[in-house]
Design a protein around this nucleic acid. Structure first.
Lengths: 150, 150
DNA sequence: ATCTAATAGTTCGATATCGAAATAATACTA
DNA sequence: TAGTATTATTTCGATATCGAACTATTAGAT
C-alpha cells in the first residue's frame, strides 16, 4: 500500500520506504503474536524478561533505554511482572535512588523455557528472506536506527 | 544492541535482523515524534486523517485493515477525532451496519497543512540512507511484510 | 420466509505508552 | 557545608491497543 501522495521523487521514495518499514514491522510482530510464543505475557513483559536473562540485572532506567521505553512505562511493566513474581526489585545500596531489577527463579525458568520457541518463530517468519537478504536488511536498519547513537 | 543469545548461525542471524528491524522502526518513529510534526494529534489520529485524505472516505473496518489495527481501537480513535470535529461518521444507507468515515473541512484543512511537514521530516530522517539503499530497504520490507497478503 | 452465518461496530477489562509534574536521593558548586 | 542541579523513580491523565463478549444488520441456505 504505497502512498498516494504526489511529491518529488525524493519525497515519494522516502515516504514509501517509511511506510513499508512500519508495515513490515507491524505485520511481522502481529504474525509473531499470532503464534502465541509467549503465552500469558505481554510483548513488553516478554522483552523485559529477555533483557534481564541475556544482559543481567539492571535498573529501570537502563531497561528503558535498552527497550526504548519511558520511565513511566517501565515502572508499570515492572509492577506487573512483580505481581506475577517473575522479577524482583532490590534497592541498590550504593545509590538508593535505583532499584536493581532481576529475575526470580520463576522468571528465569519461564523466560528460559519460552525463549527458544520465540527464536524458532522468528526464524520461521524471516525465512521468506534469504540469509544474505536478512543480513542486508539488518545492516540497513542498523544504519537507519542509530542516526542518534548506539 | 545485538542479541546475547547463542544459537545456530541461522537463529542468530534471524534474531539480530528482527531486533534491528524493530529498533530501527522504534527509533525512527521516536525521532519523528520528537520533531513534533503533528502537534495536538496522536500518531493514530494522524494516520487516520492521512488515510482519509489520500484514500478517501471508508468504513471503520477498512481503516483498521489499512492501518493494521483492531476494530476496537479504530472505534476509539474515531470517537476522539469526532470530538475534535476532524472527521464525521455517516451511516451507509446501503448497509446500515457500516459508518462511512470522512474528513470534515476542518480535518481536511488540518491534515493538508501538516502533511508536507511530516514528509519533510521523513525525508530528513531517511537521508542517512542513499536513494538506492532506501529502495532496497523498502523492497526487503515489502517482501517481509506481505508474507500473508497485500 | 425462517433460521443460521457472517459482518460492522461497540463495550469492557487489561496492559501499554507518553509527557509532565512530583518526590527522593545523589552530585556538584560556591 | 549550604544550596542547586541532576538523576531515578513514581504518579497522573490521556490515548492506544488488544481479545472477547455483545448488539445490530445483512447474507446465505433450505
Amino acid at each position: 500500500m504505497p502512498t498516494h501522495y504526489t511529491g518529488t521523487a525524493q519525497q515519494t521514495l522516502a515516504l514509501n520506504t517509511f511506510i513499508k518499514l512500519n508495515r513490515a514491522c507491524d505485520s511481522l510482530n502481529a504474525r509473531l503474536a499470532a503464534r502465541n510464543t509467549h503465552p500469558g505475557l505481554s510483548v513488553s513483559q516478554f522483552s523485559v524478561l529477555e533483557a534481564l536473562l541475556h544482559l543481567g540485572p539492571m535498573c529501570q532506567r537502563e531497561l528503558g533505554s535498552k527497550l526504548l521505553k519511558s520511565n513511566a512505562n517501565i515502572t508499570l511493566v515492572i509492577d506487573n511482572l512483580e505481581k506475577l513474581h517473575l522479577v524482583k526489585r532490590e534497592i541498590n545500596p550504593d545509590d538508593r535512588r535505583k532499584f536493581q531489577i532481576s529475575l526470580t527463579n520463576a522468571g528465569r525458568d519461564l523466560i528460559s523455557s519460552i525463549f527458544p520457541k520465540h527464536v524458532e518463530a522468528i526464524v520461521a517468519e524471516l525465512s521468506v528472506l534469504e540469509p544474505t537478504e536478512q543480513q542486508l536488511l539488518g545492516d540497513l536498519c542498523r544504519k537507519l536506527g542509530k542516526s542518534s547513537q548506539e
